[in-house]
Structure formats: C-alpha cells, structure tokens
Amino acid sequence: MKKRLATTVCALGLLLSAGVASAGTDAITYAKELPGFKRNIYLATGTKDNNSDSKVENSIVGQNYEATMWIVDASGKKVSNTAKDVTDNDIRFFTVDDSAVGGNVTLVAENDKITRVSVEISGRFYPDLK
C-alpha cells in the first residue's frame, strides 16, 4: 500500500512539473512551419523575469531559406530589435524593452523571402539569460 501511494505521489509530481510554465532562463523549444508570403507566426512564449537579453538558438530553417525574428509582449507590441537572415545553427540575442519584464513574451518569425511554400523552423528560445 505504501509503495503504491509513493508511486502515485511521484507520478503526480511529474505531471505537475511538466505543466508548469517555463521560467525565463529555461529553454522553450519550437518546431513549426513558417507560412508563405511573409506571414508571421508565433514560435514560443515564456515569462520575461528580468531585464537581461533574450536568446534564440535556431537549429533549422528548411530548404536554404532565412527567417526574420523579433519579440512581442502579451499585447502583441514589438519589444525587441529585429534579427534578419536567421539560418541553420544560428544564435541571436535580443534586447527587450523593460516594459515587458514581469509578463509573457513571444518569439515571432517570418520567412525572409516572399514565397508560396511553408518552411520548417526549429530551435530554442530563452526569454532571459540570467
């Protein structure tokens, strides 16, 4: 009986920890498709806990395409610089407005080229570096 209870408590703990929102310094992974015709897409959302830079470790932009990226706050207002020509195995840093600290921020991307095809993109987003 005690073993079964302990197993249940451990399983419940794992489920709860898996559902917790990502803290600012934790990596938030993304794997999506950039839509064609330079339409943008939200890649990852996390909490901006402090005024440090945000970081993106982009793994893949498919088919030799490049992406443009920036960060918005919870209301959709752009709060960072824009990174252009983001490619495979690319690391970028973003200075984020202090107005975003304490709220959620979202990494946004679009295809650099006007094309009809959707392009794969994947990587990790860190809302805070410290």
Rank of each mutant, 00 (worst) to 15 (best):
M1F: 12
K2Q: 14
K2L: 10
K3Q: 13
R4M: 15
R4Q: 14
R4E: 15
T8L: 15
V9D: 08
V9C: 13
V9K: 12
C10A: 15
A11T: 13
A11M: 12
L12W: 11
L12P: 06
L12N: 14
L14T: 10
L14S: 14
L14E: 13
L15H: 07
L15V: 12
S17E: 14
A18Y: 12
G19E: 06
V20C: 09
V20S: 12
S22D: 06
A23S: 13
T25C: 11
T25E: 13
T25R: 10
D26G: 06
I28M: 02
T29P: 06
T29F: 12
Y30D: 01
Y30A: 00
A31F: 09
E33N: 14
L34N: 04
L34T: 10
P35K: 11
G36M: 04
G36R: 07
F37G: 08
R39T: 14
Y42L: 09
L43Q: 00
A44S: 04
A44G: 05
T45W: 03
T45N: 04
T47F: 11
T47W: 08
T47Y: 11
K48H: 07
D49R: 02
N51L: 10
S52G: 06
S52L: 04
D53L: 08
S54I: 05
S54E: 03
V56E: 01
N58F: 08
S59M: 08
I60T: 15
I60A: 09
G62A: 08
Y65M: 12
A67K: 04
T68M: 03
W70H: 07
D73F: 00
D73R: 01
A74L: 07
A74K: 02
G76Y: 05
K77M: 03
K77Q: 10
K77C: 06
K78H: 10
V79H: 01
S80A: 01
S80M: 08
N81C: 06
N81S: 07
A83V: 07
D85V: 05
V86P: 01
I91D: 13
R92A: 13
F93M: 09
F93K: 03
F93V: 08
F94E: 04
F94S: 02
T95F: 05
D97T: 05
D98T: 14
D98V: 07
G102T: 04
G103K: 01
N104W: 00
V105Y: 00
T106L: 00
A109M: 11
A109C: 08
K113V: 11
R116Y: 06
V117Q: 14
V117Y: 08
S118K: 11
S118D: 15
V119C: 02
E120K: 15
E120F: 13
E120R: 15
E120L: 14
I121K: 00
I121S: 04
I121G: 00
I121D: 01
G123C: 07
Y126C: 03
P127W: 03
D128F: 00
L129M: 14
L129D: 14
